[in-house]
Nucleic acid binder design. Structure first.
Lengths: 152, 152
DNA sequence: GTGCGTGCAAAATCTTTGCATACGC
DNA sequence: GCGTATGCAAAGATTTTGCACGCAC
């Protein structure tokens, strides 16, 4: 799966999904999703960072529209919204290559790594079933100290 | 372990811990921690809610002090800071009865349940070790649909 | 052409901070 | 008494909203 085909695929899905919801495919919405696909999965951006990166590429999108678009893309499943321990929310591409990955965050320097775990998925599924919940997704946030911050 | 003895214990720990850090045990700090102990573990409050509940009990503490105190209590390990999917941050008592518990959140109505899982803990530990991180704590957030919201 | 989406600026939230006063130690 | 903590109000940071215009359909 090369970047070109992924990009085309996602744009098609984006258009279809928007139209089904009575929404429109605008250049701004395409620009936001394209940005995430260009930088690849596993990168976490804040709304502010998305805005700046777009401006850097000469793609003018207002910050308010970035916020509105991020919310829509999360709602449609193209992006995941992350709640790591620092301030504002961050967003990343919801990639099929890494369907259910988790985050390790260094509480000292903020360095973030990702990992996957089948047993975490199963444990979440089991816990949900036990009380009649239907699992949608689960994310494990591990707060830790990275090697550099363990030996200052 | 009854509520009285727990309350006394935590207040002693609070005082000792504060003094070790050159800080002081003030009525405001005691009020915030007492509130969390009165309502018990497993309840998640926002700063705003803490403030209102204290006012309801005729315990005047300014909102700014609530924020400052919550940060200190988290830092000292008396409270856990949660990042569930809705807006602001929430806090809960860090109870020894439930050392490492996780959260199931209904994305439709916000209903929140807790559960524990040894395998989640192990998976986080393993992932941290693999890249040389030292685990501090891990929390699994499961987004799901509760029974009521599955059958509207 | 219709009506959703955008940009702008203002508003709304949520949280932190500066400073004078109060009080724990 | 010394120096931290508080309360208040103002500032910051982040996110949302109202409105007129533009553009996707």
């Amino acid at each position: 799966m090369n970047p070109i085909s992924k990009l085309g695929l996602a744009n098609g899905l984006l258009e279809t999904g928007l139209h089904q919801a009575g929404r429109r495919l605008t250049p701004q919405r395409r620009r936001v999703l394209d940005l995430f696909e260009r930088i690849g999965s596993g990168i976490h951006l804040s709304a502010e960072e998305v805005h700046h990166k777009l401006l850097d590429s000469n793609q003018r999108v207002s910050l308010a529209t970035v916020y509105r678009t991020l919310r829509i893309l999360v709602e449609m499943g193209f992006l995941h919204e992350l709640e790591l321990t620092d301030g504002g929310h961050r967003f990343e591409l919801a990639s099929n290559d890494h369907p259910d990955h988790h985050h390790l965050v260094c509480i000292s320097c903020g360095r973030t790594e990702e990992f996957e775990s089948e047993s975490v998925l199963k444990a979440g599924q089991l816990a949900a079933e036990n009380i009649g919940f239907k699992l949608i997704e689960s994310t494990l946030n591990v707060r830790a100290l990275c090697p550099a911050c363990q030996n200052p």
